[in-house]
Nucleic acid binder design. Structure first.
Lengths: 222, 222
DNA sequence: CTCGCTCACGTTGTATACAATAACTCTTTT
DNA sequence: AAAAGAGTTATTGTATACAACGTGAGCGAG
């Protein structure tokens, strides 16, 4: 694997998501290169990747800035995810085989185990959740769809969302996955699509509620 | 504008689409650099862009190859386009203002003029068609949506499709655009979405029939 | 004859130097 | 004083040299 290029990518991405680089800040390739401990070449590669994910934005003439993520932007991302993952679920349902259903069942069983008990194991939940969606996306068997969704799923956003899940929200995620399994078992694409779209949209509202709470606190503090 | 980088991008893309580089061929950066008359650096940039558009594919260890475009792949692309442009049309309808409607009306009037008469002016048709869709996409006001669609709309595919339009198909495109205008004028997002999705799917079938060497749509539409 | 190992070559990744270009500032003129 | 212009600086684009790495071919042993 390309080492320096990925290092630059991870580092810059982390700096953006942690707020170390604020929205609107200019990103000079040479400065970033120093802070990442690599040369400008891999930094350029990293910036191109981040640009494709819309985490950074290139000005009219090629200077790059940290893009500002309003709630509207996040809502856009979720709306697109709901539509595309819905499509993935439909296609997956139309192509599903027994072995894949079994893998999904196991995966969701582990997810269920992770959230049972007094304190949910959020890390395991996230990992199993990621895997569950990944299996479906692979079963959908469309390179283009996978490519588009790849640039859309911001794991940090997913992470932040899950931080605000209560016990009920975890359980609902689990049971929505079970609904998906039922739809897959019957090869009902329309059902799978509907459940998946709802699944994603619910996640958005958890995020939005948490965001509004944070904003309110921020305003109060200022 | 970055000169060498775009030159490399355009050149390689043209070589792929013209068949000068066959599907499955390996793309060595240095070879391409020579043929484009630039160095490897801009070639690398170009390959990254082409990779994002799925025109090339990177093997397990970083060698790049021309990806093979089966009819299924093209169908995937059209299916995604239908969904995403449908979404764009719905959002546009919900945000439409009078000035934009007027621009669209003018644009479609020019499109209509281009296809009236004995021989359709295909170049003008394509340009006005592109502009029409671009205005809608801009009115949809979603950076992410625009970004995803940008990597999806293969102008050469659109071009090849239009080459197989008969007089009826041209007229049909024009009148579907008129339907969209009616939906926009009433702010009816669901209508706009449905018309747009059908519009794109019809284009796919024209392409698919041409691909199979048939002319069924021409007969049907005329 | 086949399997495996090694060495050479081809290809990509990274660093650095230089060229081009856009932004900024300071000066000058009206 | 405001605006325009030129020179300076900051930043990106490009080329090239070198390093790392995987691949394949050729050779030797079983």
């Amino acid at each position: 694997m390309a080492k320096a290029s990925d290092k630059a990518y991870d580092t810059i991405r982390a700096m953006i998501l942690s707020g170390e680089l604020a929205a609107g800040d200019q990103l000079a390739e040479e400065t970033l290169a120093e802070r990442c401990g690599v040369s400008r070449t891999p930094v350029r590669d990293a910036l191109r990747r981040l640009e494709a994910e819309l985490l950074v934005r290139r000005s009219d003439s090629q200077r790059t800035f940290v893009s500002d993520w309003s709630l509207d932007d996040v809502e856009d991302a979720f709306e697109l995810r709901a539509m595309l993952e819905g499509m993935a679920a439909r296609r997956a349902a139309e192509r599903m085989d027994q072995a894949t259903i079994e893998r999904l069942r196991l995966c969701n069983a582990r997810l269920g185990a992770a959230i049972r008990g007094a304190r949910a194991d959020v890390a395991s939940f996230l990992e199993e959740n990621r895997l569950f969606h990944e299996i479906i996306l692979k079963a959908a068997d469309s390179r283009r769809l996978a490519s588009l969704l790849g640039s859309l799923i911001e794991q940090p956003v997913v992470w932040r969302t899950a931080q605000h899940y209560g016990p009920g929200a975890f359980a609902r995620s689990h049971s929505e996955h079970e609904d998906l399994l039922a739809a897959f078992a019957r090869g009902d694409g329309a059902w799978a699509e509907a459940v998946m779209a709802g699944h994603i949209r619910r996640a958005f509202h958890v995020y939005a509620d948490a965001h509004r709470g944070m904003t309110a606190i921020d305003r109060g503090a200022a």
